[in-house]
Amino acid sequence: MTVAVERRTRNVTAALLASPSLRLVGKRLLMAIPITLGVSILTFWVLNLVPGSAAQQLLGVEATEEQVRALEREMGLDKPAWVRYLDWLGGAVTGDLGKSFVSDQQVTTLLGERLVVTFELVILAMVGSLALAIPVALLAAYRPNRLFDRLSMVVSVSGLSVANYVLALILVLIFAVQLGWFPAIGYVPFTEDPVENLRTMALPAAAIAFPLFCFYTRFLRGDLVDQLLGQDYIVTAQAKGVGPWRVLIRHAFRNSSFGLITVVGLNLSTLIGATVIIEQIFAIPGLGQLMVQAINTRDMMVVQACVIVFAVVTVVANLVTDLLYAVLDPRIRYGSS
């Protein structure tokens, strides 16, 4: 058997190299580039729809025409849009996203610290929602149409109809105002005080996670029950004498997990969108808050950078989802014979 085990590892590597999944990786990577470019062009175009000039905005109404012109020249705003786009793109490729119109700081510096905060929020929400959704869906699917199942369905259907900003306020009302368990707003960096950091992040993460939890529970429970009722390999496993939990987890859940990965990936853009408004409500200094501030001060460079970062993260996340799927699901990994 040791021979066979060695052969197994060799088989896996060889199969991976020759397999369709590697071709898929290449294809997806190639597709991600034009999508990212398209996103940046679109952003640039949309932000340049603004009536009135950014320089005018910065200087205020009293500024003379010469002053405005001078500032425009300084900011490079006198050049045609496509030249400015190419300039910006050239910088972006080398990691230079320009300077903030308002604070004169490097945009990359501003983004850096904020990105970490938003990243933590996203991860907390994602992990939290999955950690809760998986056991709930398994329990619901264990005995379909019984009390727990129905209850979980009612919760997830109504949960999907609650806007996250409403949910955020309800959470604040209950857990901050009434019970005082968590702070209503504010943020403490993780490096400063990990415990306090998690306490400040708890409510915002929950506000983002709850709708996701509802969505994942519904999806997973549906997929599990469909398999339990309709798939022959489930009956095969039962006919082996395998216990119900093992059938549910090793057979049904294993198959559902691939679909779940896709759903999680596709949901990521919604998740990122949610951080914008939730960070605003809880005064969390993340990317979303930075963007809303920049929008209000017409800080174009920063808005642009934020939108691009959000878009790139979405594209990359979708790419990673596809790849994970390809690497994990043997049906794709090995192609069919």
Partner: peptide
Amino acid sequence: MRAWRGAKIAMVFQDPARSLNPTMR
């Protein structure tokens, strides 16, 4: 019954493409 299933009585199904779990070796 579970102790009997597979041990004393076993079953082979109609469609082998569907009766094996596609994601398990």
